[in-house]
């Protein structure tokens, strides 16, 4: 579904990514873990098109997307969330989520100015789809008219997931979806992620520091350290890997 091949990325002398290769299999949850500064977010930015890799390819459904701009990748069905919430703060929850449907809508400027007719029909269809498929699903119907700034952190994270879901993505990339959340909120979010996988069959790529959650929900894990891929495999394989233990805990004395 999403295939990374020998990805290299550097900022000046800093080699952020050195030869990352893995594949996110259709309908599965793939986790990317690693200590701080390992290159997880750089990897995400390279996949979503913000960084241009020095070398290597990104394939989406077998198609080479390495040279596409972020908005073109979004049109293909690649959605993501950000580590520091990147919602539109001047808008309501509903409008934020509606923006997820942007690429599916066809209204042009002229139709938008008149509204009645095609634009209205499309807007109402979008509204219905969002209400039934996203807002109801994520249990955020009570806050749909709230401005983003009024929401607590955990809910903002959920709204950002909602915005990504509104895109009806084929691949969903989540950058630390439970960072800074308490145990209850983490459990909620983990349940939502599993529900997304189960109900929509979405392929999910996940960066996360919460090891319990990663080990619980991922079927495949890639471990990065200092820009290098030090291990990959099932949760059981990875957690027994000596390199991984060393990267996280340091070498045994």
């Amino acid at each position: 579904m999403l295939k990374i091949e020998d990805l290299h990325l550097s900022f000046g002398g800093i080699k952020a990514l050195q030869g990352i290769s893995f594949e996110a299999k259709p309908g599965e949850i793939t986790g990317v873990i690693g200590p701080n500064g390992a290159g997880k977010t750089s990897l995400f930015n390279a996949i979503s098109g913000f960084y241009k890799p020095d070398r290597g390819k990104v394939y989406f459904e077998g198609r080479d997307i390495t040279d596409l701009s972020p908005d073109k990748r979004a049109e293909l069905g690649l959605a993501r969330t950000f580590q520091n919430i990147a919602l539109f703060r001047g808008m309501t929850v509903l409008d934020n989520i509606k923006l997820g449907g942007h690429t599916r809508l066809k209204t042009n400027v002229w139709q938008a100015l008149r509204y009645f007719g095609k634009a209205q029909k499309e807007e109402l269809e979008l509204r219905r789809d969002i209400e039934e498929r996203v807002i109801d699903f994520l249990e955020i119907d009570h806050i749909r008219k709230y401005p983003i700034t009024m929401l607590p952190y955990g809910l903002q994270k959920r709204v950002e997931l909602g915005r990504a879901l509104a895109m009806q993505p084929k691949v969903l990339m989540l950058d630390e979806p439970v960072a800074g959340m308490n145990r209850e909120e983490t459990a909620d979010m983990a349940r939502f992620i599993l529900d997304v996988q189960e109900q929509f069959g979405t392929t999910i790529l996940l960066v996360e520091h919460d090891m319990h959650m990663v080990m619980d929900i991922c079927s495949h894990i890639v471990v990065l350290n200092f820009g290098q891929q030090i291990a990959s495999g099932t949760p059981a394989e990875v957690s027994g890997n000596e390199d991984v233990i060393e990267a996280y805990l340091g070498a045994a004395a």
Partner: peptide, 30 residues
Amino acid sequence: AAQNLIRTRVGRAFIAIRDRDYSAEILGIS
């Protein structure tokens, strides 16, 4: 007409660019 614009796709894209341009790009807004 301006009000119609901002309650549909095009106007929302404008506001998205104002509030956070990289986030707008990730949603497919050129």
